[in-house]
Design a protein around this nucleic acid. Structure first.
Ligand SMILES: [Mn+2]
Ligand SMILES: [Mn+2]
Ligand SMILES: [Zn+2]
Ligand SMILES: [Zn+2]
Lengths: 142, 142
DNA sequence: TTTAAAAATGCAATTCATTCGCATTTGCAT
DNA sequence: ATGCAAATGCGAATGAATTGCATTTTTAAA
């Protein structure tokens, strides 16, 4: 298993260092797309580090809680997806055909959100922007 | 039961006119906040038009399919919410404390989405923007 | 107005993702 | 090495939503 940089171990965030926990974070770190608990469960099995599905869920909870991982609820997918948290504010472009998720690491909403806070007198804590469409690949196949 | 304007009956959209279906659309039309299937189920019971919960779900499916109603998946709520579709593009401002949902009937993303389509070569079908924060009322109580 | 087919409904059972209880095991500080 | 909290496995439970099927209702046609 590869050393995951700053997070080689879980010391410092109050989590114990277990084989499956390290493996799960590793899978998440290398994954180019967000993954579900079930997918992680299966990947672990392939790597012969198999963990129980409830353990996978519990681990993902912990990692999310510690902000090492981000939990995504994409409309149209009944399962939650998880991705390694690289500490970048981002939005998602989702292909309605192949379900591919592309991160957009820019945000058009900075000023808008400030203005909205003023107008509504809310204190704004965050936002979520998902954009839906059809990717070039899927568009070709028509 | 009040005549719901253009949708006094379901003729023209291929749905049969049943008591519970009319009542459900009526509840949705009058509701100031989006509502869950369960809430509708309970409101129906109060009005002595009680329908089975599966009927409520099936009806909401149909209404959503016919675009008379919009289905919302708000992060942090395990249930789906439904609202009468007034054919207005909108976004939501959600209070993390009291869960109040405020519709925002303006969109800051028009040009951005067009630019994104060009950059990414996606054909963009839609988007979803939810903004999270704390409403004035909840902020006072601190 | 009767009639027949299609659509809608009630009810119970089922699905699916996720969570929980509890006995056992493991990691880690001492 | 020892002890204790944390983590795990396993099976059962949860909760929202869906489904199968028998029965009822709606609607259009006769
Ligand atoms: Mn943003
Ligand atoms: Mn918009
Ligand atoms: Zn695609
Ligand atoms: Zn509030």
């Amino acid at each position: 298993m590869k050393d995951t940089g700053i997070n080689a171990t879980f010391k410092g965030c109050g989590l114990k260092n277990t084989k499956s926990r390290l493996a799960i974070l590793d899978i998440l770190e290398r994954s180019v797309q967000p993954v579900s608990a079930e997918q992680i469960f299966l990947e672990l099995k392939e790597k012969n580090i198999s963990a129980n599905l409830s353990t996978v869920y519990r681990t993902l909870d912990k990692l999310t809680e510690k902000k090492l991982v981000t939990k995504l609820q994409i409309t149209g997918d009944s399962r939650a997806l998880f991705e390694y948290n690289r500490m970048v504010h981002k939005h998602y472009l989702i292909c309605l055909e192949c379900k591919k998720i592309t991160a957009i690491e820019s945000c058009p909403l900075g000023d808008y959100v400030k203005a909205l806070a003023r107008e509504t007198d809310y204190s704004i804590a965050g936002h979520r922007l998902d954009i839906y469409g059809f990717c070039p690949d899927c568009r070709k196949k028509d």
